[in-house]
Design a protein around this nucleic acid. Sequence first.
DNA 1: GCCACCGTTCGATCTGTATCGAACAGTTAG
DNA 2: CTAACTGTTCGATACAGATCGAACGGTGGC
Lengths: 107, 107
Amino acid sequence: MTTSTTSRELAHPDLSDVELPTVLFALSDAARLDLVRELAAQGPLTVAECQSADPTVPKSTFSHHLKTLREAGLIRNEPAGRQRTVTLRKDELDERFPGLLDAVLAT
Amino acid sequence: MTTSTTSRELAHPDLSDVELPTVLFALSDAARLDLVRELAAQGPLTVAECQSADPTVPKSTFSHHLKTLREAGLIRNEPAGRQRTVTLRKDELDERFPGLLDAVLAT
DNA sequence: GCCACCGTTCGATCTGTATCGAACAGTTAG
DNA sequence: CTAACTGTTCGATACAGATCGAACGGTGGC
């Protein structure tokens, strides 16, 4: 049973290392912006739940968007059994970029 | 003297027609973001004055960035004699995207 | 152990954007 | 009118990102 499950942990940048243009670029895509809005409204979701918003987009495309958002420090993507949980890093973002997320979500 | 000087007026979108992703994309480039910051701090500038911030970048490249910002509704670019005046559309932006510009400039 | 399930990664293609030199157009000076 | 000046537009090249199918890898049910 090897407790070192080497679970599929993905890399999440420290927000102090994330530059503003990177964040803005990640949010400059309609699909990604919609996802961030949904996460802000619905709280943590599994990847499948996120994707159910627009079932027409292929999994690989969706996964690519998740990667972009994750590498920009916007979301956390963590293993949860057979699935994965996606979380908006709201508190950290508010500290690093005060008012930005609220302004984006308000529109 | 033909008062109809047909001066080189460029097209400026109405901000109600500008989508948030378009604005975020325009701001997601370091060179453009720097320019917006400078306009916010220094007020209206001529193109030459804007460009003096980084004289190494060719005029055509700089003009391309101006076009991107203009088409995203972020700046106004108007003829001023032999030169051109560049202005940040701050008030209009604040109305269309409340808090966004301030949050971006604050970082 | 085996198989179905969930999601990422890989590889290929396609589109879009950045970049820069050169050409062009309007404006003012002389 | 001509020449110098300011800045945009054009055209070519190069690179980055979007998209999707297929392959891969861990996990849980049976």
